[in-house]
Amino acid sequence: MTILEPVLIVVVIGFICAGILTIASKVFFVPVDETFTLLREQLPGANCGGCGYAGCDDYANALAADHSLPCNKCTAGGPDVAAALAEVLGVTAEAAEKEVAVVMCNGTHEAAKSLLEYTGMKTCSAAKQFFGGVNQCPYGCIGLGDCVAACEFDAIHICDGVAVVNRDNCVACGACARTCPNKLIRISPAKNIVVVQCHSNAKGAETRKACTNGCIGCGKCEKTCKFDAIHVVDNLAYIDPEKCKNCGMCAKECPTGAILNMRVKKAAPAKAEAPKTEAPKAEAPAAEAPKAESASENAEA
């Protein structure tokens, strides 16, 4: 009996509190904007910030307040969520272009010369404090996985010392790009499957010394490109995503293999297979789309 009494008293107090709260929730009821609730239900709830708002709640609020805002901002949900949001708002969805994160480095263990034996805290931002990272190239991937930790979608992993994006899982929220201390990760359209995998602005000889996979700024790609899509600026090749037709000629021409054509697997140095093997599935539909516009593409295939 001694235990029953205190338990009962606490339960009674609990019930009284519950009763008061139930009454209060009726008395102080605040009608919530229905559109907000409906919109919020459609959003994935990842709170990744890919839309540019503070979270799913914030985006739903903004949409509910102003229906003219674009409803395709949710990168995590993609076109499905955009369509669902559009239905709620009664507008037609403009399909957002699918984007993915691209890592601009291929400085694998064998390619990039290491600078020091780093035994400190296993984060890129900490390693960056020592002589600019663990590799000789201060621009390249440090490979300690700050981006992996930032990714909510299991879409980026460190393979052989370099971050590699799994393009199937990537929703282009940009969390990795914001975390990377070397600003190596860029969000770019998924249809562009020829990418420069280097971010070194150092002179060609210096880049070459530090990493055998680096862009030395020789300009061969620039001469090869028929579409005026690739240019060497500050010793680094840059592909204009608008103009690039994914023909892959530059990747073939590149003497160091700094340009990766994700369609022709042999052009890529045989590294980081694990996540890449999944990549072609995503690219297949992307590759079909622009086929009419480039004859050279078919010739190459």
């Binding site: 606490v10 107090i13 609990g14 509190c17 519950a18 008061i20 709260l21 209060a24």
Partner: peptide, 10 residues
């Protein structure tokens, strides 16, 4: 704690 929690909710 029970009472304070309920109060704060209120």
């Amino acid at each position: 704690i029970l009472v304070i929690a309920a109060l704060v909710q209120l």
